[in-house]
Amino acid sequence: MTYRVRIENADGEVVTIEISADELREKGLTLEELLPPNARIVEVEEVEP
Results as ranks from 00 to 15, higher is better:
residue 13 E to R: 13
residue 19 I to K: 00
residue 39 A to T: 14
residue 41 I to W: 05
residue 26 E to I: 13
residue 37 P to A: 10
residue 37 P to D: 08
residue 15 V to I: 13
residue 26 E to L: 14
residue 42 V to W: 06
residue 5 V to H: 00
residue 18 E to T: 12
residue 7 I to E: 00
residue 29 L to F: 08
residue 4 R to D: 00
residue 9 N to R: 14
residue 20 S to Y: 06
residue 21 A to M: 09
residue 33 E to N: 08
residue 6 R to D: 02
residue 5 V to E: 00
residue 15 V to M: 13
residue 49 P to K: 11
residue 25 R to F: 10
residue 40 R to W: 14
residue 1 M to Q: 05
residue 15 V to L: 12
residue 8 E to T: 07
residue 3 Y to E: 00
residue 24 L to E: 00
residue 35 L to D: 00
residue 3 Y to Q: 01
residue 48 E to H: 15
residue 35 L to T: 03
residue 7 I to H: 02
residue 19 I to A: 01
residue 29 L to H: 04
residue 30 T to Y: 04
residue 19 I to S: 00
residue 25 R to L: 11
residue 23 E to W: 15
residue 42 V to N: 01
residue 48 E to Y: 15
residue 6 R to M: 10
residue 26 E to W: 12
residue 17 I to M: 09
residue 31 L to A: 01
residue 31 L to Q: 00
residue 31 L to V: 05
residue 11 D to M: 11
residue 23 E to A: 08
residue 47 V to E: 03
residue 12 G to I: 00
residue 32 E to D: 08
residue 18 E to P: 01
residue 2 T to G: 07
residue 39 A to S: 14
residue 9 N to C: 13
residue 3 Y to R: 01
residue 28 G to Y: 04
residue 45 E to I: 15
residue 14 V to G: 04
residue 47 V to A: 04
residue 21 A to C: 06
residue 36 P to G: 12
residue 43 E to K: 10
residue 6 R to V: 13
residue 3 Y to W: 12
residue 16 T to L: 10
residue 44 V to R: 02
residue 23 E to F: 15
residue 48 E to P: 14
residue 26 E to C: 12
residue 9 N to H: 13
residue 15 V to G: 04
residue 14 V to R: 07
residue 13 E to T: 15
residue 35 L to H: 01
residue 27 K to W: 10
residue 11 D to L: 10
residue 33 E to W: 07
residue 35 L to E: 00
residue 45 E to M: 13
residue 7 I to L: 08
residue 22 D to Q: 13
residue 12 G to E: 02
residue 37 P to H: 09
residue 7 I to V: 09
residue 14 V to K: 06
residue 10 A to R: 08
residue 33 E to V: 04
residue 37 P to F: 10
residue 10 A to D: 11
residue 43 E to R: 08
residue 20 S to T: 11
residue 33 E to C: 06
residue 42 V to L: 15
residue 21 A to F: 10
residue 22 D to L: 13
residue 40 R to K: 13
residue 33 E to M: 13
residue 15 V to K: 07
residue 3 Y to G: 00
residue 17 I to R: 02
residue 12 G to H: 04
residue 48 E to R: 15
residue 11 D to H: 10
residue 5 V to K: 00
residue 31 L to T: 00
residue 43 E to A: 13
residue 21 A to H: 08
residue 40 R to Y: 09
residue 47 V to S: 05
residue 28 G to V: 03
residue 5 V to N: 00
residue 49 P to S: 14
